[in-house]
């Protein structure tokens, strides 16, 4: 490691030279996979995710099975993590609990924002492929899924946008000078407390809030505020991506 997070205090610059409230570069594309009903490709820094959406389609497991509540569509999520995506080449088995937790988080989040009542007895399946990991993985997955669902044309009340927020203090110290940080990369995630927040659109409504590290309760408010604010910025960026894609489609139709 060249430096660690402790140098932050020297010039208020982070490991990769960002200030506390800067997002990493987000690059996103829609409709990248022709075969899928909806698809997207999203990069935040070195975290890279491809998402495809299939459906809404008739439940495969006929009868009462798949469409759990018969009147609404069910959302199913499958996450594949490429062996080469991390520092160490590692295959995650199907039963990996962290992955299944992410799957069910994403499914739960979209179940309550997609208009599932429009598609009774059907299934919407979201497939996420993680090509490269460098922090903010769950957030990237949520953002990619939003784009792919839009591409698939499934109505929703608003975008679900997510990002991470951390704090320069550790859990044990209660130092007041600690700054909140926006959008953590992999190294920062290893060292600092952080949370992933997913909001509905640009509002203050939080759909997903996951924190896995210890932090003083006093730090939390700042982290959450920065996270929610970050979500607003992310929504702006995703919205541009969608609009650009829309313009392009219109051009191709008109042109």
């Amino acid at each position: 490691m060249p430096l660690d997070t402790s140098t932050y205090a020297l010039a208020l610059l982070r490991l990769d030279g960002r200030r506390w409230n800067e997002l990493r570069r987000i690059h996103a594309q829609i409709s990248t996979q022709a075969a899928a009903d909806g698809s997207s490709y999203l990069e935040t820094g070195n975290t890279k995710v491809i998402c495809t959406v299939a459906g809404p389609a008739e439940s495969r497991r006929g009868g009462g099975g798949g469409g759990a509540e018969g009147n609404n569509a069910s959302v199913q999520v499958e996450i594949g993590i490429a062996g080469f995506s991390g520092v160490e080449r590692k295959r995650r088995g199907r039963g990996d609990k962290r992955t299944s937790e992410m799957q069910s988080t994403i499914a739960n989040a979209f179940t309550s924002t997609l208009f599932t009542h429009l598609y009774p007895h059907s299934t919407i399946s979201i497939n996420l492929h993680i090509l490269s990991q460098d922090g903010s993985l769950l957030a990237a997955c949520l953002n990619a899924a939003t784009l792919a669902l839009i591409d698939a044309g499934i109505p929703m009340s608003d975008y679900i946008v997510a990002c991470t927020a951390g704090s320069t203090s550790t859990y044990s110290s209660n130092d007041e000078s600690a700054d909140p940080l926006l959008d953590l990369n992999g190294t920062e995630e290893l060292e600092l407390p952080f949370l992933t927040v997913g909001t509905l659109g640009a509002g203050e409504k939080v759909s997903v809030l996951v924190m896995e590290t210890r932090v003083q309760v006093g730090r939390l408010e700042g982290m959450l505020a920065v996270g929610v604010d970050g979500c607003k910025q992310v929504r702006e960026i995703l919205d541009q991506v969608v609009r650009r894609q829309g313009t392009r489609m219109l051009e191709s139709v008109v042109g």
Binding site: P2, D16, G17, E22, N46, V87, D134
Partner: peptide, 9 residues
């Protein structure tokens, strides 16, 4: 190990 992204801005 891959480290860092870039001088961001």
């Amino acid at each position: 190990q891959k480290i860092g992204d870039a001088p961001a801005d």
